[in-house]
Nucleic acid binder design. Sequence first.
DNA 1: ATAAGGCCTAAGAG
DNA 2: ACTCTTAGGCCTT
Length: 301
Amino acid sequence: METGTIPLGDLSGGLDLYRTLESGQSYCWRRSDGEMYGGSPAPDAWYHTVVSGSEDGSTSNAVLRVRDHNGHLEWESTTDADTIVRRLLRLDDDLEAIVAAAPDDSLLDEAYEAHRGMRLVEDPSFACLISFICSAQMRVSRIHTMVSTLAREYGDQIEFDGDTYHAFPTPAQLATATEAELRDLGLGYRAPYVVRTAEMVANGEGHPDEARDLEYEDARDYLTRFVGVGDKVADCVLLFSLGFDEAVPLDTWLKSAIEEYYPDCDGGSYATTSRAIRDRLGGEYAGYAQTYIFHHLRTGA
DNA sequence: ATAAGGCCTAAGAG
DNA sequence: ACTCTTAGGCCTT
């Protein structure tokens, strides 16, 4: 087993692991006590995920777990995971500077102040895409259950330190699923969307990574080619996986925030409202602002 | 380009 | 206990 520690004091703006991993951005991590979303913050809790890397055409899976302990982020893994941890949890983001550069706005100030240390995540793109297809009209705890189920049923199994872990399925693995199977697993009307999108990626009809090199709005349009992906889900994938920090997913929470706090930003359509709110929330890092406002409102501000 | 109606289903709210 | 509504929307018409 490989291990490492990263002093939290070295990170600009710190790290709140609980808020980062249980705020509904990522469905790729699981809390080892199994109490995610339902319970309260567990200060020393381990979170684990499985990272798939490809080398020489073959894929390898690495189990990774992290916890916040005595002012350090501790990690344990099947591999040397320092770089991976920093990437997945975006530990090199200058959070202090991002907060400082945010527009002067009472709701945003309040949200940033209330949830100090919450960072954006960088999820693997295919898992992120499927997670947010599943997210339509769904509570975060159930989205998490669905993603866990897909990993259990279709993903690789990995043994680590006496326990069994499940990787999120590859496109080819998930494409073997049928709509009926996924309905039985509780995905409801999202079942055919997940199967079709997995087939599209497996068949080479497209890949979410293709959006990386496009301009923001072109990237959003690109992602909507996948079945079950509209503007909102596309924005989630851009923000939580593909590095588009300006993406502002307009979900029900943001829509209510716009209605109450930024009514002049409502342009009547997703595209126009998106431009207006993105501008209002600071442009470049508007997605960070979105995530704080979302979390602030959802947790009962 | 924009507007309705239908959709799975479990957990909260009333 | 039981019904009604809601939950980080999308697809088709």
